[in-house]
């Protein structure tokens, strides 16, 4: 058969290419550009090779921030995913309470992130905040602006409050899509509620949970607004997560080279870990095909 050569199709791809170039490739390449040069005022640049990367990877400050970031992300994942699944399991499947629950659950997700930070900032203040005041009244010596432990507690509580709903909504969507017949079949078999969860609900929720975990991982690893409004990274450096540290270096100290190198390392860490997460969680599916 004769195939007519027609290269016009490339023009159809062009708009997407331009769009991607402007919102991803060009900014990224700018960062790459900064990361390999020494920057002085008046737009004077010197080639510096990979020295910034060496500095970043050897810097105890970066290690500490990365450590805090990992601690934060894995703590909230360990809380939000099981808690979200539990809440989803407890939610009604039919009746008027369904919409009530769904709206209540969606509420925290609708609040702008900086507002969430400001809300919790005030809510947790030891003297006037409802939470802070109540904790102190109960005899706890609670002050999140002074004690790192309290700052972490507040930070994690805030994130759990803000984002568990996302896991709940996704898990709930997975649950309601399971036909009644599955539950009946399990009942006929005499399966326990644990067996129903383990062999029906969990496998049927697996896909949405994979998405939930990935989303929560990426979002929490990139989190900036809420902790920055709540604690500003303090007290000291105790809640300075990667993104907060990055902003301090890039905009506070205006060290473009190290900041750019750190951004790229940060980006690669997120990419690598997302890939590992995804591969591990979908390994079973692959093996089945």
């Amino acid at each position: 058969m004769n195939k007519t050569e027609n290269q016009k199709a490339w023009f159809l791809v062009l708009p997407v290419l331009v769009l991607v170039a402007f919102n991803a490739i060009v900014p990224l390449m700018t960062v790459v550009n900064y990361s390999v040069q020494e920057t002085f005022g008046n737009n004077v640049f010197f080639w510096s090779g990979i020295s910034w990367f060496e500095d970043v990877l050897r810097s105890p400050r970066f290690h500490a921030a990365l450590g805090r970031q990992l601690t934060f992300t894995f703590t909230i994942l360990a809380i939000e995913v099981p808690l979200g699944v539990l809440i989803a399991l407890a939610m009604p499947r039919k009746g008027i309470w369904v919409s009530v629950c769904l709206v209540l659950m969606a509420m925290p997700l609708l609040i702008p992130w900086n507002v969430v930070g400001a809300m919790w900032n005030i809510f947790a203040l030891p003297e006037i905040g409802l939470l802070g005041n109540a904790l102190n009244a109960l005899g706890f010596d609670y002050n999140y602006t002074r004690q790192p432990g309290d700052a972490w507690f507040t930070l994690i509580l805030m994130d759990v409050w803000h984002w568990t709903s996302l896991v709940v909504l996704l898990a709930y969507a997975g649950l309601v899509s399971i036909p009644d017949a599955y539950y009946q079949a399990a009942k006929i078999d005499g399966a326990s509620s644990w067996a129903i969860f383990r062999f029906i609900q969990l496998p049927k929720m697996k896909r949405v949970l994979t998405i939930a975990i990935l989303l929560r991982f990426m979002d929490s690893f990139n989190i900036y607004t809420e902790p920055s409004v709540l604690t500003g990274g303090g007290p000291g450096n105790s809640t300075t997560l990667l993104s907060i540290d990055l902003v301090k270096i890039a905009l506070g100290q205006f060290d473009l080279g190290p900041a750019a190198a750190m951004s790229l390392v940060y980006f690669l860490v997120v990419l690598l870990m997302s890939w590992i997460f995804y591969t591990v969680m979908t390994r079973d599916d692959e093996a089945n095909q």
Partner: peptide, 21 residues
């Protein structure tokens, strides 16, 4: 008498099996 105490089996229109077994 609940179904698990009776000796009953049922097959449905949808193909109901345990997905990860």
């Amino acid at each position: 008498v609940p179904v698990q105490k009776r000796n009953v089996s049922m097959v449905y229109q949808q193909f109901i099996n345990y997905p990860n077994m």
